[in-house]
């Protein structure tokens, strides 16, 4: 996906938080990246390392929590696990499955001084 754009989004959120809360140094950034989000965690971490250079978050540890995919199958009328965004329902084989978890792309928290 567009990992560099996402990394810049993370940097923007981190910089806003640092300014608003008067933080001195960011030691860790905790992200939630759902497994259906089509984001490559390795590539995102790589881009983040680059865009955080010369900020108070330079060198911060990047923690990425993956959130498993799940969806609501309209045919089966229940939640089913989804390994990929556009997979068929593992129960009925249909494609009318609305993702309910796993599409997250969020900054959850910072560890900071």
């Amino acid at each position: 996906m567009h990992e560099m754009s996402l990394a810049e989004g993370v940097r923007g959120i981190v910089e806003e938080t640092v300014a608003a809360q008067g933080l001195r140094a960011v030691k860790a950034i905790v992200l939630e990246i759902g497994e259906l989000s089509s984001v490559e965690p390795d590539a995102l971490a790589f881009c983040l390392e680059a865009v955080l250079r010369d900020t108070v978050a330079e060198g911060a540890r990047i923690e990425i929590e993956r959130i498993a995919g799940a969806g609501w199958c309209l045919e089966c009328d229940r939640t089913v696990p989804l390994a990929q965004r556009y997979d068929a329902c593992p129960n009925c084989g249909g494609y009318r499955v609305q993702p309910t978890a796993g599409t997250e792309m969020r900054v959850r928290e910072l560890e900071a001084d």
């Binding site: 497994e35 390392e49 540890r61 990047i62 923690e63 929590e65």
Partner: peptide, 8 residues
């Protein structure tokens, strides 16, 4: 499903 990167 946690991934950790970086040298913190």
């Amino acid at each position: 499903g946690h991934l950790h990167f970086g040298a913190g």
